[in-house]
Design a protein around this nucleic acid. Sequence first.
DNA 1: ACATATTGTGTTATCTTGTAACAAGAGATG
DNA 2: CATCTCTTGTTACAAGATAACACAATATGT
Lengths: 255, 255
Amino acid sequence: MNYPRKVLVREILVSKPFTSLKELEERFPEVSSMTLRRDIEFFERQGDVIKVRGGARSMKFITTSMEESFSTRSGAYTFSKQKIAQAASVFIESGRSLFFDSGSTVMQLIPFIPKTRLSVNTTDPNLALELVKKDNVMVHIVGGLLSRDNLSLSGMQSIDYISKTNIDLAFISPSGFSLKYGFTSGNYTESELKSAIVKKAGCVIMMIHSSKIGKSLPYTFCELGNVQKLVTDQMPDSEILDACRRCGVEVIVAK
Amino acid sequence: MNYPRKVLVREILVSKPFTSLKELEERFPEVSSMTLRRDIEFFERQGDVIKVRGGARSMKFITTSMEESFSTRSGAYTFSKQKIAQAASVFIESGRSLFFDSGSTVMQLIPFIPKTRLSVNTTDPNLALELVKKDNVMVHIVGGLLSRDNLSLSGMQSIDYISKTNIDLAFISPSGFSLKYGFTSGNYTESELKSAIVKKAGCVIMMIHSSKIGKSLPYTFCELGNVQKLVTDQMPDSEILDACRRCGVEVIVAK
DNA sequence: ACATATTGTGTTATCTTGTAACAAGAGATG
DNA sequence: CATCTCTTGTTACAAGATAACACAATATGT
């Protein structure tokens, strides 16, 4: 089975994001366009390309272009999460040791990280893999058990790790916040870890989407009094604002 | 900005691999098909779908179907690496605590892991994220500094982590092996860590592609005498075989 | 409030592209 | 040598995509 044409067609197809049928026709005038269509069909079955009107798009490029947008906008409320991230990012100063919580809100911080020497610790391997692309950041992953639910690390080893790490600034995104229960999480080992981080961090910045304010989950990992900044996307109600004022928590509403 | 239709359209589009325009027309008879086309166009720009003849294909499904083949076939010598992995996998027993080194060779182990309760520690976040999809495995990530070069973890914290972890079986893939220098690596902190792992592991299985035998890199992390098994894809020369026999190393050639 | 942009939508006519079906040629296989 | 399968070419037809314009609804600025 030797199809020199097919091999060449494949090379062309995978070499760039889109190849038009026209292009192939010009490149291979010795065969009919139907044959080239069939070639495209063949490589679609192989999973190399995906047939679109007028030609084919290379899978390789589809996935890489996906990844770019993936890290920035995934899930719900992306726009407001970006705003929150941007507002929170102003507290990042050169040379600091940071902690980044797992989750989509904190993930949005990545594009806003200033180009200065930084050290970041995180419990989120996906976030770490994104972060390592920025070459001004030393990326540390907190060891521990990887949870299947939210792909974040926690457990005994992670607490041990944190106990030996100095953190200037911790960016945490809680699953819920209410005046009654404080900042809460849905997972025991995780809340245990977050709790340890809050204790060690010089400054705790809570990044919380307005939709999570008023909600509470089973495990409280810290009280309002333990944090320094609260960044959200909508002005919280006066009761919460009062409480923040009493506790000395600066409230930042991202616009 | 409230487009109830668009939200619904999106839900339909991303819920399955392919949605035909017809389908959307039936679901939304109140708008023209042109509008639905434009919706598809919109979500194509968003990166949610990709427009094909007759409708749209969901990105989510495209990438997941891609990933299947991605984790298995990536990089050079994939076929022999799979063979090595398969041969090495027979040593995995239920209930054991394993260590998986970073790298493509060890990555190939994943499909061959038996469906029994296992605990795996790894320095490779990508490997961990693959592994966590298998729900019989407890996945632990060794904490530490994430290297930009090979996306693996090492450093002080990782050694600390290993010192507190019991490992029955360690699967390591060295960058080089020669009789003169033993098993070598190109990175100091990594070789330091690998060295610590070899010391702690009950059984060390070296997975090494034939192309790396005879090569040596700057840092030796262990000698032939420290390992129990050596899995490779081609019969090594007699000098190496002799040395293995003297050191009590079982040589497995994957076929 | 008014006038002006902007945006979303519908309609049509036209054109491009894809498909299906059949036929012919080239190797392979008995 | 007959037959089978696989690839390719041809044609006619159907389906889908696009562009251009028109109109309404909503935003925006004064």
